Each structure stands twice: as structure tokens, then as C-alpha cells.
Lab assay of single mutants.
Amino acid sequence: TSSHKLRLYERDDYRGLMSELTDDCACVPELFRLPEIYSLHVLEGCWVLYEMPNYRGRQYLLRPGDYRRYHDWGGADAKVGSLRRVTDL
């Protein structure tokens, strides 16, 4: 099985509160109590970021690497509604 891990930060450049995720999350704002995510670091696996909860809205593919600001993943703003692991490519 492949492993997945990413870290979410409330501010750009990996500042502020950090939360780690290793499984799908249908509602990021509810789980982490963060209305917006300004940076993230994908440590393992690929993920799909959705701008709205319950895997809706615009989708962004996140490969392992650094995303210091939301425009690094192509986002128009810092809204992160849900995240899902990519298990098949």
C-alpha cells in the first residue's frame, strides 16, 4: 500500500498553526478549525485538493513538494474545502 502525508499551514511560508493529514478529509475547515490554508507541504503520495467541502468545486492535483503560497498549487484563493488521496494514477 502507498502512504500519504501532507501538512497544512494557516499562513504562507509554513507559518502559523500546522496540521498533518494522512487520510481523506471531506471538510478541512471543520476538522482543523482553519477557515483558510495558505501553504502546504506534501511529504508522501499525491493528493487532490478541492476548493469546497465534500470533494466539490475546483480540483488541484498536488504532487510531493512545497506549496509556499496558494497560487503555487494554482488556487485563486486560500480556500481548501476537502482533500482526497490519489490511490490510482
Rank of each mutant, 00 (worst) to 15 (best):
R7C: 05
S82M: 06
R56A: 14
Y50C: 00
L61W: 14
E44I: 04
Y55P: 00
C46Q: 06
T1W: 05
S19N: 15
D12E: 13
Y9Q: 00
E30L: 08
L49T: 04
P29S: 12
P53M: 05
D23Y: 08
Y67C: 04
M52H: 14
L31Y: 15
Y55F: 14
A26E: 11
D13F: 13
R68I: 04
E10F: 06
L34D: 15
Y38I: 12
L43Q: 11
R68P: 13
S82P: 03
R69A: 12
L83A: 02
L40T: 00
G75H: 09
Y60G: 05
R58T: 07
H71N: 07
A78I: 02
M52L: 13
L83T: 07
W73T: 08
Y38C: 13
V48D: 10
R11L: 14
M18R: 06
H41I: 08
E20V: 08
Y55M: 00
T87P: 13
P35I: 08
C27N: 11
Y70M: 10
L43R: 05
N54C: 08
R84S: 01
R7I: 10
A26L: 09
P53S: 08
L6T: 02
G81F: 00
V48L: 12
F32V: 14
E36I: 09
T87Y: 13
G75F: 04
Y9K: 06
D23H: 08
S39T: 03
Y55H: 02
E10N: 07
Y70K: 11
Q59E: 09
L31V: 13
G75K: 15
H4M: 01
G81Y: 01
I37T: 12
R15D: 10
T22P: 01
Y38Q: 12
L43M: 15
E10M: 04
L17M: 12
Q59R: 11
H41G: 03
R15E: 13
D12G: 11
T22I: 09
E51I: 06
D12H: 12
R33K: 13
R33S: 11
G45F: 02
G75T: 08
H71E: 15
A76H: 13
Y50Q: 00
G65R: 01
L34F: 15
A78N: 10
D13V: 01
Y60S: 07
P29Q: 15
R11A: 14
R33Q: 15
D12L: 14
E10T: 07
D88A: 05
G57C: 01
V86I: 14
P64R: 02
R85P: 03
L8T: 01
V28G: 04
A76Q: 15
R84M: 12
L83W: 03
D23L: 08
M18W: 12
H71T: 11
E44Y: 06
Y55G: 01
A26P: 10
R84V: 05
A78V: 05
P29A: 14
G45L: 05
R11T: 07
M18D: 02
H41A: 10
L17T: 14
Y9A: 00
A26C: 12
L21F: 05
M52G: 10
C25R: 01
D88R: 06
E44W: 09
R68V: 05
K5N: 00
G65A: 02
R56N: 15
H4N: 08
Y9D: 00
L21S: 02
S2Q: 08
G75Y: 02
L17I: 14
L89Y: 13
A78D: 02
C46N: 09
W47P: 00
H41R: 13
G57E: 03
S82Q: 00
T1F: 15
M52W: 11
R11Q: 14
R33I: 05
D24I: 10
A76R: 12
Y70C: 10
S19P: 02
L49I: 05
R85N: 03
E44P: 04
H71P: 11
T22L: 07
C25N: 00
S82E: 01
Y55A: 00
L34N: 15
Q59V: 02
D72H: 13
M18T: 08
D77H: 15
C27T: 06
Y38M: 15
D72S: 08
Y38T: 10
S82K: 00
R69W: 14
Y14V: 03
P29W: 09
G16I: 01
L61K: 14
Y38L: 13
R58M: 08
D23E: 11
L8F: 09
R58E: 08
D72K: 12
E36H: 11
C46W: 02
D72P: 02
L6P: 03
P53V: 06
V48R: 10
W47S: 01
D72Q: 08
W73E: 05
L43V: 13
S19D: 10
M18S: 14
R33W: 06
S39P: 04
L21M: 08
D24C: 03
E36D: 15
P35N: 10
D77M: 11
L83S: 04
V28R: 01
T22Q: 14
G65W: 00
G81I: 02
Q59P: 05
D23A: 11
D24E: 02
C27W: 02
P64A: 04
L40I: 14
S3Y: 11
K5P: 00
W47G: 04
P53R: 07
L62Y: 03
S2E: 10
L62T: 02
S39V: 02
R7P: 02
P29C: 08
H4C: 03
H71A: 14
C27H: 09
L49A: 06
G65P: 05
L40H: 00
E51N: 00
R15P: 04
S3V: 05
G81M: 07
E20Q: 06
V48Y: 13
R84E: 07
A76V: 14
L21E: 00
G16K: 04
Y67F: 07
E20I: 03
R15W: 04
S3L: 07
L8E: 01
G81T: 01
N54Y: 14
F32K: 11
R58W: 02
P35D: 14
G65L: 02
C27M: 12
N54I: 06
E20T: 10
P64W: 08
V80C: 13
R7S: 02
Y50R: 04
P53Q: 02
C25K: 07
N54F: 06
I37M: 12
A78G: 14
V42C: 03
V28Y: 02
E44H: 05
V28Q: 02
Y14T: 08
Y14P: 05
Y14W: 07
D12N: 13
R63G: 15
H41E: 11
L49G: 04
G65Y: 07
P64M: 01
G16M: 05
D23P: 02
V86H: 11
M52A: 12
E10C: 08
Q59G: 07
V48E: 14
R85G: 02
R58F: 15
Q59D: 06
S82C: 00
L62P: 00
R68K: 13
K79T: 10
I37Q: 15
L40A: 08
L62F: 01
E20F: 01
Y50F: 10
E51M: 02
D66G: 11
G65T: 03
Y70E: 08
L17C: 12
L21H: 11
M18G: 04
T87M: 13
Y60N: 01
S39F: 01
Q59C: 08
L43E: 08
R69Q: 15
R11N: 11
E30M: 06
L83H: 01
S82Y: 06
S39M: 04
Q59K: 12
L6F: 02
G75S: 09
T1N: 11
G75V: 01
T87E: 15
R11H: 13
A78H: 06
P64V: 04
K5Q: 04
G74M: 03
L6N: 03
P29T: 10
R63W: 04
D12K: 13
